[in-house]
Write a protein that binds this DNA or RNA. Sequence first.
DNA 1: TCTAATCTTATCAGGGGCACCCTGATAAGCACATTAGA
Length: 213
Amino acid sequence: MNQRRSRTKFTEDQLKILIKAFDQNPYPGYATKQRLALEINTDESRIQIWFQNRRARHQCQKKSEPDEDLESRQDQDHSEEEIQSREDRRCRTSYTSSQLHTLIGAFMNNPYPGIDTREQLAKEIGIPESRVQIWFQNRRSRFHVQRKREPDDQDSEQRQDQDQDLWDERVQAALAPGAQQAASDQRTVSTEGGRGQHLIAHNPRQLLPSCCF
DNA sequence: TCTAATCTTATCAGGGGCACCCTGATAAGCACATTAGA
């Protein structure tokens, strides 16, 4: 089950263009990323990921080459570029109640959808897949925050053990030949994302707007 | 082995409705995020 997006292989020419753009500004705004996407004939979301990874590698290199002058200059550059980037953000996507209903339903079924599911959802609600991915990221994040804020209605250690047991059970079920995901359970877990984190909706309604009921 | 893809967490910022709150977008990741495909 290949649930990850297949790896993008950039050509040498594409990389030249990307690296040149990175050297000019490691924090390009949305318009720049779109222009680059057009120029090298790829999706804007792939450009965004490439810049994120490039910045991460760049930071590592910077740490391993402690040149104070270079470092301070680059830090200064970054702060200016960050401001530029913030002026050029992508416009907020606003979802209709119908679109949200679909997304929330999918989230309750599986908070870690793979590329196929995300693309299917994107097609269904007419939103780019990259926005669906971001929606799930934000949703999971706020779910985790909410879980932390919840008052303990039982011993937390006991609850963690129960969560782990349920997680293991679902992983076993998912790996079993011909296994079907039990999606109707109120306590829902899935491994489709494949990273091993688990997230259990004790009460999924807590995260849902009233318009969904 | 390299690096695209993905994850969590924190924060910025738009928009609804008038002081915040919700939530989409973005950045960082520090015993230098982790995972996994080519």
